[in-house]
Design a protein around this nucleic acid. Structure first.
Lengths: 207, 207
DNA sequence: GTTAGCATGTAAGGAGTTACATGATTTT
DNA sequence: AAAATCATGTAACTCCTTACATGCTAAC
């Protein structure tokens, strides 16, 4: 039970991206912010320490491409460092993607977990989506109660804000409902004919 | 130029709520989380230190309601502490609400600033809304670029996520457009007939 | 009289940012 | 050869959370 502290969003995101392909830090950061652009943007000040830490835990290894034609002594004073997953890293990634707990459906974590759903077991996906939904439904109730109270006092802007917030959450719930529906349909299909080559994913996502 | 560090969202929110009516910490926290429920939820661990700090800065004062019928010595060992704004506090609040900078339109700050728009000057409101909008439009561009790249590789879930994110941002932009339109109409009305009693707010917000 | 909720606080620490410092490579 | 951008890193700091500690007050 030693040493399982503070996973954080970054660890998962980094492991997930490095699983797709090895990369160096700078590139990693760009891909990271492209992937999660609407939620959060990480800076080097958090990325590099994270890489260092993953290195220390043996989940990734450095691959410094030492060009062999450089005349010896001044070898690679500063060059790209390509990181890639180790076997333990892959295992850890798989473990993180299998845990369907609050970390997976709270605001900070949901996006990252969702982004790597194609590496996540179907049943885990479903439980995460449902967890997220019930989380949002709680919020919806509180929000509606707050709105009712706000409507009495006439603070137009507060009302407008809460209204917009409410609608945003409602919208996300509808989105989740649709996703859950697709997932369930998919699961039924799979259990019905366990022979056909169903390639792991529900269809229809293109706009 | 001494001592103007680290305003933070909490400070503004607390000052704003205390301006509406004096309150004690516990209640304050509930109102806080009702107001900003969809963005963030503060814990006592941040609220009380903040109050302490505002007290030290002289922006608020304690009002311990010492009940006079209690027999002296065991007077108020633990009772409610009602906080209220001082003159400096009101000034500070007004100052915070007048600054139309990044703090007012970035993700963390926008909600709080918006919530207190009825105490904000009309021109400042407009600039904040426009700042927020252009902030989101930048994000939109990056998001669309990322989406185009993602569409090539066929990662269905990543695509779904980015699509949903994109639509969320587009939705918020539309909302801002509407608000900006109303604000502008309001301003024109006000400059046209500067005699009538136009009570400070654009109409039509009820759903 | 005891559980539940109201009410106030503190200490330790996590997660990430800003600002800085440096060097390598590409573009103009 | 200057400017931009790619690339790696660190130190100090901020903001906030978790977990704890305490006491009061109402309801059952």
């Amino acid at each position: 039970m030693a040493g399982k502290k503070g996973a954080g969003v970054l660890e998962l995101a980094v492991l997930g991206l490095l699983h797709e392909s090895p990369m160096h830090g700078y590139e990693l950061r760009k891909r990271l912010n492209a992937l999660l652009g609407m939620f959060r943007a990480f800076s080097y000040g958090s990325l590099y320490p994270c890489l260092k830490q993953l290195l220390a835990k043996g989940l990734i290894v450095e691959d410094r491409p030492e060009e062999p034609n450089v005349p010896l002594a001044l070898q690679s004073r500063r060059s790209k460092i390509v990181y890639k997953l180790t076997a333990e890293g892959k295992e850890r990634l798989q473990q993180l993607l299998t845990e369907a707990g609050p970390a997976a459906w709270e605001d900070e974590g949901f996006g990252v977990h969702f982004a790597f759903f194609s590496h996540t077991r179907a049943d885990v996906r479903l439980r995460i989506l449902e967890g997220r939904r019930s989380r949002l439904e709680e919020r919806l109730e509180r929000l509606r109660a707050a709105l009712a109270r706000t409507r009495e006092r006439v603070d137009t802007y507060t009302l407008e804000l809460q209204n917009h917030g409410l609608e945003s959450v409602e919208r996300e719930v509808r989105w989740l409902n649709e996703l859950i529906g697709r997932e369930r349909a998919e699961q039924e299909q799979q259990t019905k004919n366990s022979s056909k080559t169903t390639p792991d994913m529900p269809r229809e996502t293109g706009r």
